[in-house]
Design a protein around this nucleic acid. Structure first.
Length: 343
DNA sequence: AATTCGGGGAC
DNA sequence: GTCCCAGAATT
């Protein structure tokens, strides 16, 4: 149970944060709008993604799909194309699905209530809070990795951020500091502070607006926070592909959506025995994902019979692509790199 | 409650 | 090499 004095102290910290934000907040393109559609897109794009990495994707995506209707009417493949290289591709599939949810279930108008926004596929508690606070002035903390880090340091709190209860734990802390006005700015301020000042490594505590209040800083233990118990496990995975070509054409197909690289394009993973005599150059690619170390073997299969090429493609459901066409499809990064190396 | 899903940048 | 990033869905 918090006393009145403590609650006042919390609010004081939130006010400092907001004051800092007004001067030092980042000038980002999506900060100028309160269009829930645009904020939604930006929140999804920047999930687990650095601002610098996703900025161009955001601009291109908004330009091509400026509103919910455009996105809902778009081809699934084109949505994925605009997601090329961003990773976590189910985000794009969920985005497309949710746009059709808005058209069908919300009469084409972006929902305004937190509970409704939360119903959209791919929108969780963080994203619903971000949209609600920024666009509709709802006082809900958008607790993300930045909140975990900043709050655990300010209060020298050793609550394990990999605990599944961390979200609700830090939400309670964040809410106590949250000002009545400008909830969106408060949430954005915490993200900017976490990104620019209270960074995971080498935080700039000397210029931090909260350094007077920060218990970790004042006890010289900033590096001890946040506490995180869970470590990432990395497994090895080998993939084998056949680059089946005839002239300037080659065969591709779309992946299923039950594994990595959902719905992205790839090469055949097997060929008939009769093709083995055409196997030529082989390339081995190492590629790191967050939880996997991939080793990808790609074998060139250069056919000299157009009939065999087409027959194999048709019978196994492959598409014929070429070095112009593949730019208009979304490939996994290592396969895209491979294709570019052949040009 | 634990696992899975990318790619890139900082160190 | 390790860790983290405007997290969410699935098991």
């Amino acid at each position: 149970m918090k006393t009145k004095k403590q609650t006042a102290d919390f609010l004081h910290i939130g006010a400092k944060l907001l004051a800092w934000y007004k001067i030092h907040g980042r000038d980002l393109p999506f900060r100028k709008t309160k269009d829930p559609y645009k904020i939604w897109i930006c929140e999804i794009i920047f999930q687990q993604t650095r601002i610098e990495q996703g900025l161009n994707h955001y601009e291109n995506f908004i330009q091509r799909f400026p509103d919910v209707q455009t996105l809902a009417n778009a081809d699934n493949d084109e949505v994925l194309l605009y997601w090329k290289g961003l990773g976590y591709y189910s985000r794009a599939l969920n985005l497309h699905h949710a746009s059709q949810q808005i058209v069908n279930d919300f009469n084409g108008k972006f929902p305004k209530k937190y509970e409704d926004i939360l119903k959209l596929k791919g929108v969780g508690k963080y994203t619903a809070a971000a949209i609600s606070s920024i666009c509709f002035n709802e006082k809900i903390p958008a607790v993300d990795g930045n909140f975990y880090r900043v709050l655990s340091r300010v209060f020298a709190d050793d609550f394990d951020i990999s605990d599944s209860k961390a979200f609700s734990y830090f939400s309670d802390l964040a809410l106590m500091m949250m000002p009545e006005k400008n909830p969106g700015h408060y949430n954005e301020a915490m993200m900017d502070l976490g990104s620019e000042i209270c960074k995971p490594k080498n935080p700039k505590c000397e210029t931090c607006p909260l350094n007077f209040d920060c218990l970790a800083f004042n006890s010289g233990k900033v590096q001890d926070f946040p506490q995180k118990s869970k470590k990432v496990k990395i497994t090895d995975l080998e993939l084998e592909y056949f680059f089946v070509e005839f002239g300037k054409s080659f065969l591709i197909r779309q992946r299923k959506d039950d594994f990595i690289w959902k719905r992205l394009y790839e090469f055949p993973t097997e060929i008939p025995k009769s093709f083995e005599k055409y196997i030529g150059a082989q390339k081995t690619i190492s590629h790191k994902l967050t939880h996997k170390n991939l080793t990808i073997h790609i074998y060139k299969v250069k056919l000299n019979s157009k009939r065999e090429f087409q027959k194999f493609g048709e019978e196994n459901g492959f598409l014929v692509s070429d070095f112009e066409d593949f730019h208009y499809k979304s490939f996994p990064k290592p396969l895209e790199n491979y294709l570019n190396s052949l040009i």
